[in-house]
Write a protein that binds this DNA or RNA. Structure first.
Lengths: 345, 345
DNA sequence: TAGAGCCTGGACAACGTTGTCAGCCTCGGG
DNA sequence: CCCGAGGCTGACAACGTTGTCCAGGCTCTA
């Protein structure tokens, strides 16, 4: 009995289909479809019978089949670095809100900062025929997306620009934010200011470093190599880097931390110091105002970034958008104490 | 020209199909399918030709069609309360890790603690024919899931049990955790201990309240009504509640905070007090160790909860699982200072 | 050298839905 | 009373893929 075999091999649990509903209600297939989709042209009486059959059988429309027929999936993909990072929670949430407002579901995945995994994820999402993609890129070459773009998959990059393709990107003014943060320290009398950041191959890290250098140069302060630590990322190495620049021959009186994880580690190190060292961090951290002293930060608005990106995505889908653009959102310096400490030699 | 009209109405951007690839490679449709899926029985030479055509056309398999044919979607749904809540980031991430290990994608949505929205989301996921669901319930009646369960959708509830249906659930030992936390305060000499928690209709909140009462009763301490604040959830009201129990006629010397949001607000309130008030919070919070004093908490392992739930989900899908079970994970008391303060009257 | 068996490739149906179109039935007007 | 219009309804094909099954060509052995 090939029929039976086929069913057991390809299905598990037998879900009722429109055909089953039609049979039970004694109507045609298409009539069921009309009722399910709220299309006009069905007698109230017929509709009632169909609805009854639907409820009795526990019918649920199969959206895979629907998608196959209609072309659009009403779902968008979000590829980010790590959902466990507090920066991405609100971002993801705001993207979801916008998607919901457009009747779309959100599928997401974490790249774990691995370019290969990013590509794998993005292509899996494309295979699901998501209507659009919001990508926080891990890699720096996105030419693999060209066929998708050509096929009409709306795409917006977030936090960092796409590599080697022309696409929308929404990001913070990393350069300006870092420059302002460092300038803030300079304004409070600091001259020996340390910088701890991620690998400069990451766009945001490079921009923030550039901001640091610009602020120093604007103030006419030459930067010692020992003040900069680039590419350290795990807490242990950040800790060592911080300790070194605090105890070297030319010790810093203030530190600019390149991202939230670095900031947290630096706070721990500073808490152990007897000397009061000023600190400004990029990215806000929770409870920053409750620490002693409060932590001064350059804050990005993750929710706003996500919202902007998602809205742009749907405008691409509406077709009301023309050429790719780069949208830079301002950052905000939040003073809470740690950045206003005077230099202590 | 109905053909043209159909295409423009249902598709946007023309994606190549296996048929197109087959035509270009000069082979049959099924041969392309074999190459795409790595099935055996294709000459290396033929495979090369097919692969070339795939690359040239930028072909990407349409998983909607595949799903329609195969029955399984290799995707699971996660419905949680709010991705922006720091508890759910790690949870979501660990569910995703497990899904990835099983070759599945994760679709997620936030219910915003609204039962209707939860149902809407869950049903949308079912319409997508997700293979399984991990749900952090907002509502307390999940009978609407019965047809889905019967149809074989694997389902695991997290953090709170399902309402009115029999399903797997993975949660923390909320009762035991709260009891231990309060007992810890009692052990440090406190007798007037406040409790601030969410609405008792939420299972976790009710259990934690029960733990509080049990610890007090075990110690033979009668509880004054003015020590308990139930159902407050927004920061402003939590603040008022905390201030009241601190300044009443029978002021508390310690507070047990029922969840992380409450804890944060209580910390702010206590920081303004001259008197030293002890605090133990349910749920860990970031940087809790850097505050003065460090915040003692009853910690849940969000990642472990997510992992456990997801693994159980896939075991349901393997068919290696029989009856629904309730899995309770232990909590961990982390002492950091605030819970060890002596009573100060 | 013939027959058996294997390997490769392709034709075809089916998955569940929706768009198209044609047929039926009813109702109102001539 | 008949005809046309318009409202309901259902038959059918198509979306892109995969499972089944068969044909044809090859190799290997007796």
């Amino acid at each position: 009995m090939p029929q039976t075999h086929l069913r057991s091999a390809t299905r598990y649990g037998n879900r009722p289909t429109m055909k089953d509903v039609a049979a039970r209600a004694g109507v045609g297939l298409k009539t069921v479809s009309r009722v399910v989709n709220g299309e006009p042209g069905v007698t109230p009486e017929t509709e009632r019978r169909v609805q009854e059959a639907i409820d009795a059988l526990g019918f649920r429309r199969n959206d895979s089949a629907r998608v196959l027929r209609k072309g659009r999936t009403a779902s968008i993909g979000l590829v980010l670095e790590d959902l466990a990072d507090p920066f991405y929670g609100p971002l993801s949430r705001s993207v979801e809100e916008v998607a919901r407002a457009h009747g779309a579901l959100l599928i997401n995945g974490s790249s774990a900062e691995d370019p290969e995994r990013e590509q794998e994820l993005v292509l899996a999402l494309c295979a699901r025929r998501v209507d659009g993609l919001v990508v926080i890129p891990a890699g720096d070459d996105h030419r693999y997306l060209e066929p998708e773009l050509k096929a009409g998959v709306a795409t917006v990059f977030v936090d960092r620009p796409a590599g080697r393709i022309d696409a929308d990107v929404v990001l913070s003014d990393n350069f300006g934010g870092a420059r302002d943060g460092v300038a803030h320290l300079i304004a409070h009398g600091h001259r020996r200011i340390g910088f701890i950041g991620d690998m400069p191959r990451i766009h945001t890290a490079a921009e923030r470093l550039r901001g640091y250098r610009a602020a120093m140069e604007d103030a006419g302060i030459p930067v010692a190599d020992s003040w900069m630590s680039l590419g350290v990322t795990d807490p242990e190495r950040v800790r060592r880097a911080a300790e070194e620049m605090l105890s070297g021959p030319d010790p810093v009186t203030a530190v600019f931390a390149g991202n939230n994880r670095v900031t947290v580690t630096v706070i721990r190190v500073l808490a152990e110091q007897t000397r009061r060292v000023a600190l400004v961090g990029f990215d806000d951290i929770e409870l920053a105002d409750l620490l002693q002293p409060g932590v001064t930060v350059v804050a990005q608005d993750a929710a706003e970034i996500g919202r902007t990106a998602a809205e742009r995505l749907f405008r691409q889908l509406d077709g009301t958008l023309a050429t790719p653009e780069r949208i830079e959102l301002p950052t905000r310096l939040i003073t809470r104490g740690s950045g206003e400490l005077p230099p202590a030699d």
